[in-house]
């Protein structure tokens, strides 16, 4: 067995180069930031108006104020995000109640603990002026199957007297992705919310059905955690909620700063889109971030009516009001109202 010297060396070098490259590539990720901060990963389903407090808390510096090192990722879809939450990769998921109900039906133990949107702020748009509004075979974009946009679409189609099975439903991603896909012609219709709705109206898209007009109580977007995490990390959750609520109040009290955040995070420069997104946020945001019990009951009822076998229809099996109660009892929310003078 002889190793030819000339033969070995380049191989060696290649191997070392590969190893070196690996080290160089993996270097920065491993580096921890300040030691005293509690690492906390939160995922949003997509950058839209109903997750704005997550960004406001980051850009207003409130996570740091609460000694949290928060990492925000976007999963482009609620159900996918719920899978990620269950995997333990993140500590909290910002998502509607529907995936919570669906996951718990299959034996997961997750709860919504705070809400930004106790209604359905969704409108179904079509890229073309079609009669009837959505003929058979229309390609409709949603974020992911079973997520809030999907449920909303089901409700809208039913209200329009259309059959879901007649439509081509594609998983596209969040509102901005669906809007872009509609503009590009990749899909013909999609449920949208701000900043997508204003952009869609400007673009001349047809509003086929406005779900928000009905003002149905709902839980469209909420902070969701696993019961295990809630039990073992009550302190981290309180810190997160404090930063999150303060972010929301800071945004409501400082329109200019909040609009900067909207412009940067939602990647839009259009003042009309920014304004209406901001106004929508102020309209939707419950001042105590409390999930609506009536809304929860509606979501549960809706999912039960689609044939999903639920383990229970009790709201407390899907929503945990404990953390928000504790926050209120500590006087934090009253303090926020005083400090930021928001009614």
């Amino acid at each position: 067995m002889y190793w030819n010297r000339r033969a070995v060396r380049p191989t060696h070098r290649a191997a070392m180069a590969a190893f070196g490259a690996m080290l160089a590539l993996s270097g920065p990720t491993g580096a921890a930031r300040a030691d005293e901060l509690i690492p906390f990963k939160v995922a949003i389903s997509t950058p839209v108006v109903s997750i704005l407090p997550v960004f406001l808390a980051a850009d207003g510096g409130f996570y740091k104020k609460q000694s949290l090192d928060v990492d925000i990722i976007s999963t482009e879809g609620g159900t996918k995000g719920m899978q990620v939450l269950l995997s333990g990769e993140i500590q909290a998921m910002h998502v509607g109640l529907s995936p919570v109900v669906a996951a718990n039906a299959q034996g997961a133990e997750v709860r919504a603990i705070a809400s930004t949107t106790n209604t359905l702020p969704i409108s179904l748009f079509s890229a073309k002026k079609l009669t009837p509004p959505l003929p058979k075979g229309t390609t409709i974009g949603i974020s992911t199957l079973g997520s809030e946009t999907d449920i909303a679409l089901t409700i809208a189609l039913k209200a329009l007297g259309l059959a879901r099975s007649d439509m081509q439903i594609n998983q596209i991603g969040g509102t901005s992705q669906r809007f872009a896909a509609m503009s590009a012609g990749r899909i013909e219709a999609a449920p949208l919310l701000e900043p997508g709705t204003t952009a869609a109206r400007q673009k001349g898209f047809t509003e086929v059905y406005d779900l928000s007009a009905a003002k149905t109580p709902w839980i469209f977007d909420a902070v969701v955690v696993t019961t295990d995490y809630a039990k073992d990390h009550a302190d981290a959750i309180q810190r997160f909620l404090k930063a999150y609520v303060e972010g929301a109040y800071w945004g409501m009290a400082n329109p200019d700063k909040a609009k900067e955040v909207i412009s940067r995070r939602f990647k839009t420069k259009d003042p009309a889109v920014i304004d209406s997104t901001y106004n929508e946020f102020k309209r939707l945001m419950p001042r105590d971030a409390r999930p609506s019990v009536e809304g929860s009951a509606n979501v549960i009822k809706q999912l039960a009516s689609t044939g999903l076998k639920l383990r229970s229809e009790k709201v407390e099996d899907y929503v945990d009001l404990g953390p928000i109660d504790a926050l209120e009892k500590s006087g934090f929310i009253a303090e926020m109202q005083r400090q930021y003078a928001v009614q």
């Binding site: 996951a103 992911t144 199957l145 079973g146 997520s147 439903i169």
Partner: peptide
């Protein structure tokens, strides 16, 4: 992966999305 109607792959994705392992 993208579809939503019929097919074994679709069925797997749909089941995954509704947590029906």
């Amino acid at each position: 992966i993208y579809g939503s109607a019929v097919g074994v792959g679709v069925m797997i994705n749909q089941a995954g999305s509704t947590f029906q392992t």
